[in-house]
Amino acid sequence: MLATMFVLVPLLLPAPAQSTKPFTVKINSPWKTNVWFDSGKNVGFPCNYTGQKPIFRWYHNDVEITDTIVTDARISTYMASDGEFFLNIHNIKYEDAGTIKCVGELNGYSDSAELKFEVYEPITLKASAIQYGQLGGDAEVDCETAGRPGPAYRFWNFKNRTSVAQSEKFDFSESKLLIKPMMDEDATDYICGVYNGKTNQLKRFRITLRCWILTTN
C-alpha cells in the first residue's frame, strides 16, 4: 500500500496596504472641542505635518491669509524653524469668531485641518451700581451684564461677603435679586458674582440698594 504524501505549501498573505498619503496636516492645539477665548487675548494656532513637507496656506472664515492680501493687520502667519506654520490673531475680537483652516499642498495632493472657535467679551456691569426699592414693598436688584453671550451663573452676597440664601425673602430670578418685602435693613450693599463657565471668567460687582418711601397727601 502506498503511503499518502502530504506537501505543505506556505500560505502567502497579501502585504499590508501602504498609505498613499505623502503627508498629513494637523492643527496642533490643546483645544479640541468647546473652544472659547476672551476678547483682547493674543492667540496662536500652530499647524504641523507628518511625512513630506507641504506648502501651507491658512484660511480664516474662508478668506486666505497671505502677505499680499491683508484683510486685518491683527491676523498674520509665519513659519517656525521646526516646520510648524502659525496663524496668529492679536487682540482677538468678537467678530473674529468662526473657523480657521490649515491647508497643505504638494505635487497635486492636499490635506487640511480646521478648528472652530468663539470669542466672548469681558463681563461688565450694564445695570446701575445704585438702585432703589420701595420700603414695605418688593424690591429688585438688577445685575444685568454686558458680556456676550450672557453669563451662565450668578450668585449673591451681602457686603460682608455672607451668601444670600434662596428663600421666601430673597428670590433669584435670572439677572435679578428679588427682595419681598423690603425693610430698612435691606437697604445696603450687595455683591453680585457672575461666573461664565465657558471662559472660566469670574467678576464681582457691588450694587448699592437704597429705599424710598411712598408718601400720599
Rank of each mutant, 00 (worst) to 15 (best):
P22I: 12
S112T: 06
N61Y: 06
V25P: 00
T24R: 11
I92L: 01
L106F: 08
T33V: 06
G83K: 14
A15K: 09
I75W: 02
A17H: 12
K116S: 07
E64N: 04
S39R: 01
F23G: 03
N61R: 12
F56R: 04
R57V: 03
P16K: 10
G40Y: 05
D82N: 12
A15L: 13
Y49F: 15
G98I: 00
I92G: 01
P14Y: 08
S29M: 11
N34Y: 15
W31L: 08
T68A: 15
F23E: 06
S112D: 09
T20K: 14
G98Q: 00
N91P: 02
P10W: 13
I100G: 02
A15Y: 14
D111P: 08
L87G: 06
G44S: 10
S110W: 06
D38Q: 08
F37D: 00
V43F: 04
Y109P: 05
N34I: 09
P14R: 15
V103R: 05
D38C: 09
G98Y: 02
T71F: 14
E84H: 10
F37W: 01
K53E: 09
A17M: 11
Y49Q: 08
K21Y: 01
E114M: 14
D111W: 07
A80T: 06
Q18K: 14
V35S: 09
L12F: 15
